[in-house]
Amino acid sequence: METLSFEFPAGQPPTGRALVGCVGSGDLEVLIEPGQAGKLTIKVQTSVNGAEQRWQHLFERIFQEQMPPALKIDIHDFGATPGVVRLRLEQGFEEIGHD
């Protein structure tokens, strides 16, 4: 078990929060809450050790497309593939957008 922290530049915080995903092999649980203006912080707790670079690259790819809102994201990972991580984050962003 490993806990990783990441930080990215961001815009303004949204108002809503969202909990998506599922506890179980190959999946992850994502809690998204409003963060501090200008900052996107991510904490990843993962069952797979030694994958910090992979997470960093994945987040960079996701957030380089457009400036993300200021969020505090908490991830509990159970060995999800990058594709599943991306889907779950998109699902979470979508839910926040609906508030």
Binding site: C22, V23, G24, D27, T81, G83, L87, E90
Partner: peptide, 23 residues
């Protein structure tokens, strides 16, 4: 699909098959 997720409140759930994972 995970039973726990199907039993939960999410409108869309994660379905995995040989080709892809999708909501």
């Amino acid at each position: 699909v995970a039973l726990r997720e199907w039993a939960g409140a999410a409108r869309r759930v994660l379905l995995k098959n040989a080709r892809e994972a999708s909501l």
